[in-house]
């Protein structure tokens, strides 16, 4: 579904990504792991058009993503969450989730100002869809609260709900459980499993090994901007390169 070919990104002279190639197959969960500074977030930002890769190509459903604006890529059906939560604190939980349906809500100022009946009808339908997703994420009772007043774990779930609501082809999750306690992590993990069994394609960037090993169909390992390994969780776990670069460090610190 998503194909990366020799993607490279340099900041000045510094290579952040170097010849990264892999594919995200439809209906599977691909996990992207690697130590801090390996280039995971840079890669996510390249895919979503926040950054533009210096070399290589990224294709999504046979369309070239490289060079396209972020909003255009989003409209193709790629949703994402952010490492440091990018919610709109003053808007209610419901409105935050509704922003996830921006592509379908119409773009014409004039139509919106006239509030024609068909728009009102569409607005009601969007609201119902948003409430349905909130229900799925156990947030229905908080739908009217401003997001700013929510606990961190709830905010993470709102962001996830916002990414899911438009039923995108692909969701990129940038560290969905970072900063959550064990209980919250388990609940997000449960939600991700549900998404997977519903056939949702995911690209997951995560540090939590237990989560990654439990959910991923395929694991891609980045180190210093290079793709050093790729395979099933079991294969990656036993790859000596990976052990040295990443898991090795964890064993050393554990």
């Amino acid at each position: 579904m998503l194909h990366l070919e020799e993607v490279g990104k340099r900041f000045g002279g510094l290579p952040a990504l170097d010849q990264v190639s892999f594919s995200v197959p439809r209906g599977q969960v691909t996990a992207l792991i690697g130590p801090n500074g390996a280039g995971k977030s840079t890669l996510i930002n390249c895919i979503t058009g926040v950054l533009h890769p210096t070399t290589g190509s990224i294709r999504f459903l046979d369309r070239q993503l490289t060079g396209q604006a972020a909003y255009a890529i989003a409209r193709l059906g790629i949703a994402r969450t952010f490492q440091n939560l990018k919610l709109f604190p003053r808007l209610s939980v419901l409105d935050n989730v509704l922003t996830g349906l921006s592509c379908e809500a119409g773009h014409s100022l004039t139509m919106a100002m006239l509030r024609l009946p068909y728009l009102r009808h569409r607005e009601r339908q969007l609201k119902l869809r948003a409430l349905e997703v909130l229900d799925r994420f156990d947030l229905a009772d908080k739908s009217r609260l401003p997001v700013g007043t929510l606990a961190y774990g709830d905010k993470k779930r709102v962001e996830l709900a916002r990414a899911c609501v438009a039923e995108p082809e692909l969701i990129l999750l940038d560290e969905p459980v970072a900063g959550l306690n064990a209980e919250e992590t388990a609940s997000v993990g449960e939600q991700l499993k549900q998404l997977r069994s519903a056939g949702q394609t995911l690209l997951l960037v995560e540090h939590d090994m237990e989560l990654v090993m439990g959910i991923a169909d395929q694991v891609v390992v980045l180190d210093s901007g290079c793709c050093i390994a790729r395979g099933t969780p079991a294969e990656v776990r036993n790859n000596p390169l990976v052990l040295e670069a990443y898991l090795g460090q964890m064993e050393a610190t554990a």
């Binding site: 058009g49 926040v50 972020a70 919610l87 709109f88 409105d95 509704l98 119409g106 919106a112 607005e123």
Partner: peptide
């Protein structure tokens, strides 16, 4: 409207809105 929410999103965070 949805356009209004898009504007609020834009005010909140341009990267997120995009």
């Amino acid at each position: 409207s949805g356009v209004g929410r898009g504007l609020a999103a834009l005010a909140g965070d341009e990267t997120a809105a995009a």
